[in-house]
């Protein structure tokens, strides 16, 4: 069992109508490893993540967590699996009808049945871990800046001490300094929990900072994977074009030229 990866994807396919989004994704993520999946818009990053989370059902292929298949789980079993997972959404996805501390405590109260009175100190403590004071807990999400909302979303993702954390474009829409703050917080939180982390991003600075390993997805397939150190000498023309942000290369963008 020591060699069983925490997360394993084999030949995962997904189509939406005529469009093939995932075309046989194979990926292993080791225990306590931080894997970053990079790729352009529409390459299948988010769909891969949502397939692992059970938000989207793949058409074909196997997904395992701790060696256990998760694709066709019943709702109750899926809830048990998700109880071990935390997720930071691209747009934070905070519940605007709840206060900040209630958002952070949500997984504890609803998912684990802890009372609100017991969950509140944990939520306040978790907010402290992402650099937010207790007074922020009493605010509504709409009263926070984008960077603060991201921190709250991070606090919500880690509050229940998950074994696996997913980060969907964690630095999108943030200024470079706040993006670096979020990256540092992600690294610190993942290390503190000893969690397995899977992030998707097209922010190379973020990928270099939070990843142990990087995988590149293109047209629904993992076309390269290796350590952070290897990415600059990958020998893969697709990876080279992507990390240098060149318009010319094997990756062609559909651009209308009048």
């Amino acid at each position: 069992m020591a060699d069983t990866p925490k997360i394993r994807l084999r030949d995962v396919h997904k189509r939406f109508g005529p469009k093939t989004v995932l075309d046989g994704v194979d990926l292993d993520v080791g225990r306590a490893e931080s894997m970053v999946i990079i790729g352009g818009s529409g390459s299948g990053k988010s769909v891969t993540l949502k397939c692992i989370l059970g938000l989207i059902h793949p058409d074909k292929g196997a997904i395992e967590i701790d060696g256990q298949p998760t694709v066709d789980l019943a709702a109750r079993e899926r809830e048990q699996v998700n109880a071990r997972i935390g997720m930071l959404f691209q747009g934070s996805a905070l519940f605007d009808s709840l206060k900040v501390w209630e958002n952070v405590a949500f997984g504890l109260v609803q998912g684990r049945g802890i009372s609100r009175a017991d969950a509140k100190p944990v939520a306040i403590q978790t907010l402290g871990q992402v650099g937010l004071g207790p007074e922020v807990g009493e605010l509504n999400p709409a009263e926070l800046s984008g960077g603060m909302q991201k921190r709250v979303a991070l606090a919500r993702a880690i509050a229940a001490k998950p074994e696996i954390i997913f980060f969907d474009e964690p630095t999108t829409g943030l200024d470079p300094i706040m993006a670096d703050v979020i990256n540092d917080l992600i690294v610190a939180c993942v290390r503190r929990l000893g969690a397995t982390a899977v992030s998707i991003t097209h922010d190379l600075a973020s990928a270099r900072k939070i990843a142990d390993r990087i995988a590149m997805i293109y047209k629904g397939r993992i076309i390269w994977q290796g350590s952070v150190k290897e990415i600059d000498n990958s020998g893969n023309p697709y990876v080279d074009q992507f990390i240098h942000g060149r318009a010319e290369g094997p990756i062609k963008m559909d651009v209308f030229r009048p």
Binding site: K50, L53, G54, L55, A75, E79, Q80, N82, A83, I85, G86, M87, F89, Q90, G91, A93, L94, F95, D96, F106, G107, Q110, G111, R112, R156
Partner: peptide
């Protein structure tokens, strides 16, 4: 609005059935 801002997906990841909630 909860659907398009991924709040319903967030409910699922927090082990809460969106239908029940």
């Amino acid at each position: 609005t909860m659907r398009v801002t991924e709040q319903i997906d967030a409910l699922t990841t927090l082990s809460t059935n969106p239908f029940k909630y």
